[in-house]
Simulated scan of single mutants.
Amino acid sequence: METDKRKVSAEEIERLFRFTRQHFVEHYDLQAELADHLANAIEERWQQHPELSFEDALTAEFKKFGIFGFSDIVEKRQNALTKKYYKLLWGYFKNYLKLPQVFGSIAAVVVVYLLLGFSAYIYSALLFIVMVFSVVRLFKVKKMYHKKTLSTGRRWLLEDIIFSCGGIGPILYLPMQLNLHLADYYLSEPIRWGLAVFIVVVVLLEYAALYILPHNAQKHLAETYPEYRLLQQ
Protein backbone atom coordinates (compact mmCIF):
# COMPACT_ATOMS: atom_id res chain seq x y z
CA MET A 1 0.00 0.00 0.00
CA GLU A 2 1.38 3.39 -1.02
CA THR A 3 2.05 5.73 1.89
CA ASP A 4 0.66 9.27 1.86
CA LYS A 5 2.98 11.81 0.34
CA ARG A 6 4.41 14.36 2.71
CA LYS A 7 2.88 17.77 2.05
CA VAL A 8 4.01 21.31 2.83
CA SER A 9 1.84 22.64 5.65
CA ALA A 10 0.07 25.99 5.84
CA GLU A 11 2.67 27.20 8.36
CA GLU A 12 5.45 26.16 5.99
CA ILE A 13 3.76 28.01 3.14
CA GLU A 14 3.86 31.15 5.30
CA ARG A 15 7.54 30.47 5.88
CA LEU A 16 8.05 30.33 2.11
CA PHE A 17 6.39 33.73 1.72
CA ARG A 18 8.67 35.15 4.42
CA PHE A 19 11.65 33.52 2.73
CA THR A 20 10.90 35.22 -0.59
CA ARG A 21 10.52 38.59 1.16
CA GLN A 22 13.83 38.06 2.94
CA HIS A 23 15.41 37.55 -0.49
CA PHE A 24 14.14 40.88 -1.82
CA VAL A 25 10.97 39.77 -3.60
CA GLU A 26 8.62 42.66 -2.77
CA HIS A 27 5.52 41.93 -4.83
CA TYR A 28 2.83 39.55 -3.63
CA ASP A 29 2.21 37.95 -7.04
CA LEU A 30 5.88 36.99 -7.36
CA GLN A 31 6.00 35.81 -3.76
CA ALA A 32 2.99 33.56 -4.39
CA GLU A 33 4.46 32.21 -7.63
CA LEU A 34 7.82 31.43 -6.02
CA ALA A 35 6.25 30.00 -2.86
CA ASP A 36 4.14 27.64 -4.97
CA HIS A 37 7.17 26.61 -7.02
CA LEU A 38 9.28 25.98 -3.91
CA ALA A 39 6.48 24.04 -2.19
CA ASN A 40 6.09 21.70 -5.18
CA ALA A 41 9.86 21.25 -5.46
CA ILE A 42 10.19 20.49 -1.73
CA GLU A 43 7.40 17.89 -1.88
CA GLU A 44 9.10 16.21 -4.85
CA ARG A 45 12.40 16.20 -2.95
CA TRP A 46 10.68 14.61 0.06
CA GLN A 47 9.56 11.71 -2.13
CA GLN A 48 13.23 10.86 -2.66
CA HIS A 49 14.51 11.98 0.74
CA PRO A 50 11.66 11.82 3.29
CA GLU A 51 14.10 12.25 6.16
CA LEU A 52 14.96 15.82 5.15
CA SER A 53 13.68 18.64 7.32
CA PHE A 54 11.70 21.43 5.71
CA GLU A 55 14.52 23.95 6.14
CA ASP A 56 17.13 21.61 4.65
CA ALA A 57 14.87 20.90 1.68
CA LEU A 58 14.25 24.62 1.21
CA THR A 59 17.97 25.40 1.31
CA ALA A 60 18.66 22.70 -1.28
CA GLU A 61 15.96 24.02 -3.62
CA PHE A 62 17.06 27.63 -3.24
CA LYS A 63 20.61 26.69 -4.29
CA LYS A 64 19.19 25.77 -7.70
CA PHE A 65 18.52 29.46 -8.34
CA GLY A 66 22.25 30.19 -8.34
CA ILE A 67 24.23 33.04 -6.85
CA PHE A 68 21.70 35.67 -7.95
CA GLY A 69 18.82 33.98 -6.16
CA PHE A 70 15.39 35.08 -7.34
CA SER A 71 16.66 38.16 -9.19
CA ASP A 72 16.57 36.54 -12.65
CA ILE A 73 12.96 35.43 -12.22
CA VAL A 74 11.95 38.86 -10.88
CA GLU A 75 13.62 40.57 -13.84
CA LYS A 76 11.92 38.32 -16.40
CA ARG A 77 8.53 38.87 -14.79
CA GLN A 78 9.19 42.61 -14.62
CA ASN A 79 9.97 42.68 -18.35
CA ALA A 80 6.89 40.62 -19.23
CA LEU A 81 4.52 42.82 -17.23
CA THR A 82 6.15 46.02 -18.49
CA LYS A 83 5.37 44.82 -22.01
CA LYS A 84 1.81 44.15 -20.90
CA TYR A 85 1.63 47.68 -19.48
CA TYR A 86 2.70 49.26 -22.76
CA LYS A 87 0.24 47.05 -24.62
CA LEU A 88 -2.57 48.33 -22.38
CA LEU A 89 -1.35 51.92 -22.83
CA TRP A 90 -1.27 51.53 -26.61
CA GLY A 91 -4.76 50.00 -26.54
CA TYR A 92 -6.21 53.03 -24.77
CA PHE A 93 -4.35 55.41 -27.07
CA LYS A 94 -5.74 53.69 -30.18
CA ASN A 95 -9.26 54.43 -28.96
CA TYR A 96 -8.61 58.10 -29.80
CA LEU A 97 -7.94 57.10 -33.40
CA LYS A 98 -11.33 55.42 -33.79
CA LEU A 99 -14.74 56.92 -34.46
CA PRO A 100 -16.09 59.07 -32.91
CA GLN A 101 -13.06 60.00 -30.73
CA VAL A 102 -10.88 60.62 -33.77
CA PHE A 103 -12.84 63.80 -34.54
CA GLY A 104 -11.84 65.21 -31.16
CA SER A 105 -8.20 64.25 -31.81
CA ILE A 106 -8.23 65.96 -35.21
CA ALA A 107 -9.84 69.07 -33.73
CA ALA A 108 -7.15 69.21 -31.04
CA VAL A 109 -4.40 69.02 -33.70
CA VAL A 110 -5.99 71.89 -35.64
CA VAL A 111 -6.26 74.05 -32.49
CA VAL A 112 -2.61 73.45 -31.57
CA TYR A 113 -1.56 74.17 -35.17
CA LEU A 114 -3.35 77.52 -35.07
CA LEU A 115 -1.80 78.39 -31.71
CA LEU A 116 1.69 77.62 -33.01
CA GLY A 117 1.06 80.12 -35.78
CA PHE A 118 1.36 82.96 -33.29
CA SER A 119 4.86 82.11 -32.06
CA ALA A 120 7.31 79.25 -31.63
CA TYR A 121 7.22 80.07 -27.93
CA ILE A 122 3.70 78.63 -27.82
CA TYR A 123 5.31 75.18 -28.09
CA SER A 124 7.36 75.84 -24.95
CA ALA A 125 4.31 77.16 -23.13
CA LEU A 126 2.20 74.12 -24.07
CA LEU A 127 5.01 71.77 -23.09
CA PHE A 128 5.37 73.52 -19.73
CA ILE A 129 1.63 73.22 -19.04
CA VAL A 130 1.65 69.51 -19.93
CA MET A 131 4.66 68.90 -17.67
CA VAL A 132 3.11 70.73 -14.71
CA PHE A 133 -0.17 68.84 -14.96
CA SER A 134 1.72 65.55 -15.43
CA VAL A 135 3.92 66.05 -12.37
CA VAL A 136 0.97 67.06 -10.18
CA ARG A 137 -1.12 64.11 -11.34
CA LEU A 138 1.80 61.69 -10.97
CA PHE A 139 2.27 62.87 -7.38
CA LYS A 140 -1.42 62.29 -6.64
CA VAL A 141 -1.38 58.84 -8.25
CA LYS A 142 1.68 57.76 -6.27
CA LYS A 143 0.17 59.09 -3.04
CA MET A 144 -3.06 57.20 -3.73
CA TYR A 145 -1.12 53.99 -4.43
CA HIS A 146 1.02 54.37 -1.31
CA LYS A 147 -2.12 54.74 0.80
CA LYS A 148 -3.60 51.61 -0.79
CA THR A 149 -0.51 49.46 -0.22
CA LEU A 150 -0.39 50.55 3.43
CA SER A 151 -4.01 49.50 3.92
CA THR A 152 -3.74 46.13 2.12
CA GLY A 153 -0.14 45.25 3.00
CA ARG A 154 0.38 43.87 -0.51
CA ARG A 155 2.04 45.10 -3.66
CA TRP A 156 1.40 43.58 -7.07
CA LEU A 157 3.98 43.99 -9.81
CA LEU A 158 1.58 45.06 -12.57
CA GLU A 159 -0.11 47.45 -10.14
CA ASP A 160 3.29 48.91 -9.27
CA ILE A 161 4.03 49.51 -12.94
CA ILE A 162 0.61 51.08 -13.60
CA PHE A 163 0.80 53.46 -10.65
CA SER A 164 4.39 54.42 -11.34
CA CYS A 165 3.14 55.46 -14.81
CA GLY A 166 6.16 53.93 -16.52
CA GLY A 167 5.59 55.71 -19.82
CA ILE A 168 5.86 59.26 -18.52
CA GLY A 169 9.63 59.78 -18.60
CA PRO A 170 10.25 58.67 -22.21
CA ILE A 171 7.13 60.50 -23.41
CA LEU A 172 8.34 63.83 -22.00
CA TYR A 173 12.03 63.47 -22.87
CA LEU A 174 11.66 63.87 -26.64
CA PRO A 175 9.44 67.00 -26.50
CA MET A 176 11.99 68.62 -24.19
CA GLN A 177 14.80 67.84 -26.64
CA LEU A 178 12.80 69.24 -29.54
CA ASN A 179 12.18 72.39 -27.56
CA LEU A 180 15.93 73.03 -27.32
CA HIS A 181 16.32 72.94 -31.11
CA LEU A 182 13.28 74.94 -32.23
CA ALA A 183 13.81 78.30 -33.83
CA ASP A 184 12.39 81.03 -31.65
CA TYR A 185 11.11 83.24 -34.45
CA TYR A 186 9.54 81.12 -37.19
CA LEU A 187 7.99 77.71 -37.73
CA SER A 188 7.25 76.57 -41.26
CA GLU A 189 3.82 75.15 -41.99
CA PRO A 190 4.93 71.48 -42.20
CA ILE A 191 6.80 71.83 -38.90
CA ARG A 192 3.74 73.40 -37.26
CA TRP A 193 1.56 70.49 -38.40
CA GLY A 194 4.16 67.99 -37.22
CA LEU A 195 4.48 69.64 -33.82
CA ALA A 196 0.71 69.91 -33.47
CA VAL A 197 0.30 66.18 -34.08
CA PHE A 198 3.20 65.44 -31.76
CA ILE A 199 1.86 67.52 -28.89
CA VAL A 200 -1.61 65.97 -29.15
CA VAL A 201 -0.11 62.45 -29.21
CA VAL A 202 1.94 63.24 -26.07
CA VAL A 203 -1.11 64.62 -24.27
CA LEU A 204 -3.24 61.58 -25.18
CA LEU A 205 -0.54 59.15 -24.05
CA GLU A 206 -0.09 61.07 -20.81
CA TYR A 207 -3.83 61.07 -20.19
CA ALA A 208 -3.99 57.31 -20.78
CA ALA A 209 -1.03 56.67 -18.46
CA LEU A 210 -2.01 59.08 -15.68
CA TYR A 211 -5.80 58.83 -15.65
CA ILE A 212 -7.28 55.95 -17.64
CA LEU A 213 -4.90 53.13 -16.68
CA PRO A 214 -4.88 53.90 -12.92
CA HIS A 215 -8.69 54.24 -13.01
CA ASN A 216 -9.01 50.80 -14.64
CA ALA A 217 -6.18 49.19 -12.68
CA GLN A 218 -8.39 46.83 -10.66
CA LYS A 219 -9.98 45.43 -13.81
CA HIS A 220 -6.61 44.69 -15.41
CA LEU A 221 -5.21 43.25 -12.18
CA ALA A 222 -8.20 40.92 -11.80
CA GLU A 223 -7.66 39.75 -15.39
CA THR A 224 -3.96 39.11 -14.73
CA TYR A 225 -4.24 37.60 -11.23
CA PRO A 226 -7.28 35.37 -10.58
CA GLU A 227 -6.81 35.71 -6.81
CA TYR A 228 -6.56 39.52 -6.83
CA ARG A 229 -10.28 40.27 -6.37
CA LEU A 230 -10.63 37.77 -3.50
CA LEU A 231 -7.66 39.23 -1.63
CA GLN A 232 -9.04 42.76 -1.91
CA GLN A 233 -12.22 41.82 -0.03
Rank of each mutant, 00 (worst) to 15 (best):
G117I: 02
P175H: 06
F198M: 08
R21C: 00
S71H: 10
A80Y: 09
K87H: 11
I67E: 13
V110N: 00
E61M: 14
Y86R: 04
Q78R: 15
A208W: 01
S164L: 02
K7S: 10
Y96T: 01
S164D: 08
L174Y: 14
L115P: 08
Y113V: 01
M1P: 07
K64L: 15
M176V: 12
E44P: 00
L97E: 11
K64G: 12
L231K: 08
P170S: 06
E14A: 11
M176N: 01
G167A: 07
H215R: 15
P100H: 09
V25Y: 08
E189D: 08
W90H: 11
Q78E: 15
P175W: 08
I171W: 02
P226V: 06
P170R: 01
Y121A: 03
D160Q: 10
K147G: 07
F118C: 01
W46K: 05
T20K: 02
G194C: 06
R45I: 00
L34K: 03
V201G: 03
K7T: 15
E206M: 12
S134K: 09
D72K: 14
L150Q: 14
L178D: 02
L89K: 06
R155M: 12
E189Y: 05
I161S: 03
Y113A: 10
C165E: 00
E75H: 14
V132L: 15
V136W: 11
F54R: 04
F93Q: 04
Q101I: 00
H215L: 10
T224G: 02
L99G: 01
V8H: 06
L180F: 10
I122D: 03
D72L: 13
R137K: 15
K83L: 12
G91K: 08
L127R: 05
A60M: 13
I129F: 13
Y145C: 00
I199G: 00
L81Q: 15
N216K: 13
V111A: 14
L157T: 05
